[in-house]
Amino acid sequence: MPLTVDELKAKAVQVRRDSIEMITAAGSGHPGGSLSETDLLVALWFRVLRHDSKNPQWAARDRFILSKGHGCPALYSCMAHAGYFDPAILPTLRKLGSPLQGHPDRRFIPALEASTGSLGNGLSIGIGIAHALKLDKTDARVWVMVGDGECQEGQVWEAAMYAGAHGLDNLTLIVDYNKKQLDDMVKHILPMDPLGGKFAAMNWNVMEIDGHNMQLVVEALEESRKVKGRPTCIVAHTITGKGVSFMENDPKWHGVAPTKEECAKALAEIGA
């Protein structure tokens, strides 16, 4: 059953808690980008995506690719609570033998549509899948999520140009526009603005939203299904580390695990 907006918000609290706990238990990982993307992932997995955890290879399923693979803790949490695997294994993130690899790995979880972690790859794979779905005459949709820093990869723009030119209207790209990358703020490394404008110039239907407003997130994602003749890019303005005050907007938290004390503080702020 698709969840209501209020239920989605509650789910997002759970996913944020999981991400922090998983990364703390692993001793490494990427909290900043896991928290920024959470509301988008929750809206997808518990409301928008057409999928069935009992039948992960269902031909008519929507396909989701987390191109910014380092954000996988939030994805694993969503998939666990959506029934793909037991949430009890979440604390095994990054441990030897765990299916919850440091970056999404199809060898361990076939329901992941792509093995990612090398930034820039996801959109091209999504285009290939979108073409194949059209050839197979299914109305399933492809959803790809990228980071804003990731959009500095040239491959993203080769793919964007192509999808726009070919009018791939069964494809939605979501940019987790949290304004941070690994070394610093995006604007200090290589400014991306106007990000939406770049996609618009390449024949994409572009929507800019507050990526933490669950109502708007759901509406934008659902709206993108209806657009004909063009792919949709949702530029979701988000905040790195959203929900944990000392992580918010601080690039330091891109790829550092919290200590046990920091974890407790973070969980207290996220709530239950």
Partner: peptide
């Protein structure tokens, strides 16, 4: 490099 896995 360890925990990051094969992509890195």
């Amino acid at each position: 490099i360890g925990e990051d896995g094969p992509s890195q």
